[in-house]
Design a binder for these strands. Structure first.
Length: 387
DNA sequence: ACTATTTGACCCGT
DNA sequence: ACGGGTCAAATAGT
């Protein structure tokens, strides 16, 4: 079923439609002597931004097979998109969890898919923050990093508590080129991200992206999980939409020989109970602690199936990552998360009620390259977007 | 009233 | 102890 790309598709269409409208406006402005240069320039910027965003969405979402970086539309000035970062690192994390006995021991292993994109915002327009990548994020922290001039911002998915979306991202403005932002994503969105509007804004230019993870990620999001059972109907619908998958591809400009494309299917599951169990910091607020769920149960849920990872079919291994259940669908949804900590009371209650799903189970996070349905070798790039 | 951001404290792995 | 990541209370914005 391809419902996965639904909302993304809508957003894409929406974006392109907006761009078309802007182009039309520009056209009329061009034939109207009275329009100012500024206005025209503004429209041009908006149009470019629309293109950028659409491109971003495409790559982000279904794997797009294109190797080249997107050519930048706006580039003026300075440094070419050299690839700044290190060349890629690939690999991933797959962690195999064995069920080792030592139960109690807080085992921790967690690895969330993680990859980085470098985005440039055009100086011309205001707007600075990194572009809107189509997801709604909530900032939860900012830190000054050792040798960086600019602080790093930490964001997590807005729906973390409601839908248990584990995705987070960090945004670090580049020291040398302030127009570049390095955005590191961690975890795939499991939320439906229902309302997503994508306001156009700065025009970003993706310089490159690379997946990596290599390192162990230390902690990931804290959240244990639990399953949801009854969710409201409405909710469930939303859920349906949600699966989308994303993937990225790297292209490090050809530097490397192999490409690493990755795509992840939709959800990530906490695969392992691992993390949650460790909800690492527990900050003890008495009450909160009170409702923490037994990690134990959590554990059981998954674990079961794991498919070994497959490496990438083709060339070197590329990818893997979380996975979804056999098909990403509704059911398989994230059954996880929890929240106990923050979040207003109201939210909390809602959440709780929403939680628990019967489905849980089987879906475990496994890793494999492409969505279940597609063939590994690549695939579907654009499964017909606009047709 | 609510939700989002700010920001120093806290926690954790090195 | 240090650096990085997250929490959570206070604050700001809607």
């Amino acid at each position: 079923m391809e419902n996965m790309g639904d909302w993304e598709q809508k957003n894409l269409i929406n974006e392109l439609t907006q761009g078309r409208e802007l182009a039309r406006q520009l056209h009329s402005h061009l034939t109207t002597a009275s329009s100012s240069h500024e206005t025209r320039e503004f429209l041009v910027q908006k149009i470019l931004a629309s293109y950028e965003k659409s491109l971003l969405m495409l790559r982000w979402s279904s794997s797009v097979g294109e190797p080249q970086p997107i050519a930048g539309a706006v580039r003026n000035s300075e440094s070419p998109p050299s690839q700044v970062g290190s060349p890629r690192s690939e690999d991933s994390d797959r962690d195999i969890r064995d069920l080792d006995h030592k139960s109690d021991a807080p085992r921790k292993r967690k690895a969330l898919p993680r990859w980085t994109q470098q985005v440039r915002v055009s100086p011309g327009m205001g707007l600075e923050g990194p572009l809107d990548d189509g997801f709604s994020w909530r900032k939860y922290g900012q830190k000054d990093i050792l040798n960086a001039k600019y602080p790093r911002g930490y964001y997590r998915c807005t729906h973390r508590h409601v839908q248990g979306c584990l995705a987070t991202k960090q945004v670090q403005r580049s020291d040398e080129d302030p127009t570049i932002f390095e955005i590191t994503y961690r975890g795939r969105h499991t939320c439906s991200q229902a309302s997503n509007i994508m306001p156009p804004q700065a025009s970003p230019e993706i310089v490159l992206q690379e997946p990596n993870d290599v390192m162990d990620l230390q902690h990931l999001n804290p959240q244990p999980q639990q399953q949801h059972d009854h969710h409201e109907p409405v909710l469930s619908q939303e859920l349906m939409l949600l699966n989308f998958q994303a993937n990225l591809k790297v292209q490090t400009g050809n530097l490397d020989t192999h490409h690493a494309g990755q795509s992840f299917p939709s959800f990530i599951f906490p695969s392992s109970s691992t993390f949650e169990a460790a909800d690492h910091h527990h900050h003890p607020t008495p009450e909160q602690q009170a409702h923490v769920f037994p990690a134990s149960m959590i554990d059981n849920n998954f674990v079961g199936s794991y498919s070994p990872s497959f490496m990438s079919p083709e060339t070197s291994g590329t990818n893997y990552f979380s996975a979804s259940p056999g098909g990403m669908n509704i059911t398989g949804f994230p059954a996880d998360q929890q929240r106990h900590f923050q979040s207003s009371e109201s939210e909390l209650t809602e959440i709780i009620s929403a939680a628990t799903s019967a489905t849980n189970s089987p879906t475990v996070g496994l890793d494999f390259p492409f969505g279940p349905k597609f063939d590994p070798n690549f695939s579907f790039d654009n499964h017909g977007f606009f047709s």
